[in-house]
Simulated scan of single mutants.
Amino acid sequence: MAGKFELYKDKSDQYRFRLKAGNGEVIAVGEAYTSKSGALNGIDSIKRNAADAEVDDQTDD
C-alpha cells in the first residue's frame, strides 16, 4: 500500500496534514495553516521537492 497525506483540522481549527507510510505510521507532520488551500499547497510543495532533497546531517557522530 502506498503512503498517503491526511488533511485535518486541529483543536485550534487550523488546517494541518500528516504523511503516513503504507503501514500507517506517521512519517511527517506539516505546520498549522489558516486555510485549507495553504495546507494543500504545503502538501504539493513536499510532493514536488522531497524526492530530490539532499540529507544535511548536522549530527556530531
Results as ranks from 00 to 15, higher is better:
Ser35Phe: 00
Lys4Phe: 14
Ser12Val: 01
Glu54Lys: 11
Ala21His: 11
Asn23Cys: 06
Glu31Lys: 09
Ser37His: 05
Asn23Gln: 03
Val55Asn: 08
Ser35Cys: 03
Ala39Phe: 09
Ile43Leu: 06
Val55Lys: 11
Thr59Asp: 14
Arg48Met: 12
Lys20Ala: 05
Glu6Lys: 05
Glu31His: 04
Ile43Phe: 00
Asp13Val: 04
Ala39Glu: 03
Lys47Tyr: 05
Asn23Arg: 05
Asp52Trp: 01
Met1Gly: 08
Asp44Ile: 02
Ile46Glu: 05
Lys47Ile: 13
Arg16Pro: 01
Glu31Val: 07
Lys47His: 03
Leu19Tyr: 14
Thr34Pro: 12
Tyr8Cys: 11
Gln14His: 12
Ala2Cys: 11
Ala50Gly: 07
Arg16Phe: 02
Asp10Thr: 07
Gly3Ser: 14
Asn41Phe: 00
Arg16Cys: 13
Asp56Gln: 07
Lys11Asp: 15
Tyr33Met: 06
Thr59Pro: 07
Val26Asp: 11
Asp52Gly: 09
Lys20Arg: 15
Glu31Met: 09
Leu40Arg: 11
Ala2His: 13
Gly3Asn: 09
Val55Trp: 05
Lys9Glu: 14
Asp60Val: 10
Tyr8Ile: 09
Ser35Met: 01
Ala32Ile: 00
Ile46Lys: 06
Ile43Trp: 00
Phe17Val: 03
Ala21Phe: 10
Phe17Leu: 05
Glu25Tyr: 04
Phe5Met: 01
Asp13Ile: 03
Ala50Ser: 13
Gly42Cys: 02
Ile27Lys: 02
Val26Met: 14
Val26Arg: 12
Asn23Ser: 14
Gly3Trp: 09
Ala28Thr: 09
Gln58Leu: 14
Ala53Lys: 08
Ala50Tyr: 11
Asp56His: 13
Ile27Asn: 08
Ile43Arg: 02
Glu6Gln: 08
Lys9Leu: 11
Gly30Asp: 05
Arg48Glu: 15
Asp13Arg: 12
Gly38Ser: 04
Lys11Trp: 10
Asp56Trp: 08
Asp44Lys: 13
Ala50Lys: 01
Ser45Trp: 04
Glu54Tyr: 03
Asp10Ile: 03
Lys9His: 05
Val29Met: 09
Ala28Glu: 14
Gly3Ala: 10
Asp56Pro: 02
Asn41Asp: 15
Lys9Asn: 07
Gly22Phe: 07
Glu6Cys: 00
Phe17Gly: 01
Ser45Pro: 00
Asn49Pro: 01
Ala39Trp: 10
Phe5Ala: 04
Tyr15Gln: 02
Val26Ser: 11
Ser45Cys: 06
Ile27His: 03
Lys4Leu: 12
Gly24Glu: 02
Lys36Ala: 05
Glu31Ile: 02
Ala28Ile: 08
Thr34Tyr: 14
Asn49Ser: 10
Ser45Phe: 03
Lys36Pro: 01
Gly3Thr: 10
Arg48His: 15
Tyr8Glu: 13
Gly3Glu: 06
Tyr33Cys: 15
Arg48Gly: 09
Glu25Phe: 06
Ala2Gly: 14
Glu54Ser: 10
Phe17Asp: 02
Asp60Gln: 13
Gly38Val: 04
Gln14Asn: 14
Asp61Phe: 12
Gln14Phe: 10
Ile43His: 03
Asp13Pro: 00
Ala51Thr: 04
Ala51Ser: 08
Ala51Phe: 06
Phe5Gln: 00
Gly30Lys: 08
Asp61Ile: 04
Asp52Asn: 11
Glu54Thr: 07
Asp10Ala: 10
Lys9Ser: 06
Lys9Gln: 15
Ile43Asn: 06
Gly30Trp: 00
Gly30Leu: 02
Phe5Leu: 03
Leu40Val: 06
Lys47Leu: 13
Glu31Pro: 09
